[in-house]
C-alpha cells in the first residue's frame, strides 16, 4: 500500500473469505486437473523428447505444490485489500490481492446500480454491488459485501444518484 491513498473505511464481510476460498479451491482443482490431463497426453505422445514424456507426471505435481499456498493466501490477502467507502458523494473502493485496483466513482456520474448474487453468495448471505457509469473505466464492482449492507448501499447510491444526476456525459 505504498500508493499515497488511505485505506477505504469499511472492510467487506468476513464470510467473503469463505467465498474466495471456495472459488480458489475450484480454480485449483481445475488447474491441477487440466495439467494432469495435459501430462497424460504428453506421456502418450510420440513427438516430445523422451526426457519430457517420461517425466510428464511431474507437471501436475509441480503445479499443485506451487499453487497450493496461494489457495489459502489469496482469500486472506483479498480480505485485507478489499475495502470500500462512500463519502463526499464519491464511491471509493479497493480490490485485488497481488495486484491492486482503486476505483473512484462520483455518485453524480452513476448511471445504474445493480445488486447481484451468485449461488455461492446466496448460500453465504453475501452480495455484489455493481456501479456503472458511461465508461467501463469509471465503473466499479464491490464484491463480498454482507447482503444487508449491499442492499443499503445500492439503495443509498440509487437515491443519491437521482438527486445529483449530472448529464454532462
Amino acid at each position: 500500500m505504498t500508493a499515497p491513498l488511505r485505506d477505504p473505511a469499511h472492510p467487506v464481510s468476513r464470510r467473503a473469505i469463505v467465498l474466495w476460498l471456495v472459488e480458489a479451491l475450484i480454480g485449483f482443482v481445475l488447474l491441477v486437473g487440466g495439467t494432469a490431463g495435459a501430462a497424460a497426453w504428453l506421456s502418450g505422445a510420440r513427438w516430445p523428447p523422451d526426457m519430457l514424456s517420461e517425466h510428464a507426471w511431474l507437471l501436475p505435481v509441480a503445479v499443485g505444490v506451487v499453487m497450493a499456498p496461494f489457495v489459502v493466501l489469496e482469500p486472506l490477502l483479498r480480505y485485507v485489500v478489499h475495502r470500500w467507502e462512500l463519502s463526499g458523494d464519491v464511491v471509493y473502493a479497493r480490490a485485488g490481492w497481488l495486484s491492486r485496483r482503486w476505483v473512484f466513482v462520483p455518485v453524480s456520474r452513476i448511471q445504474t446500480v445493480d445488486r447481484a448474487q451468485g449461488w455461492l453468495e446466496r448460500l453465504l448471505g453475501l452480495a455484489t454491488v455493481e456501479i456503472r457509469t458511461a465508461s467501463y473505466a469509471g465503473s466499479s464492482t464491490i464484491s463480498g459485501l454482507d447482503d444487508e449492507v449491499a442492499a443499503r448501499l445500492a439503495e443509498d447510491l440509487a437515491r443519491r444518484a437521482e438527486e445529483l444526476r449530472d448529464d454532462a456525459t
Binding site: R101, W102, V103, V105, T133, A134, G138, T169
Partner: peptide
C-alpha cells in the same frame, strides 16, 4: 467534464 471516474491499477 467528460471524466466520469478514475481507476488506479497496480500489478
Amino acid at each position: 467534464r467528460a471524466v466520469v471516474g478514475w481507476t488506479v491499477r497496480q500489478t
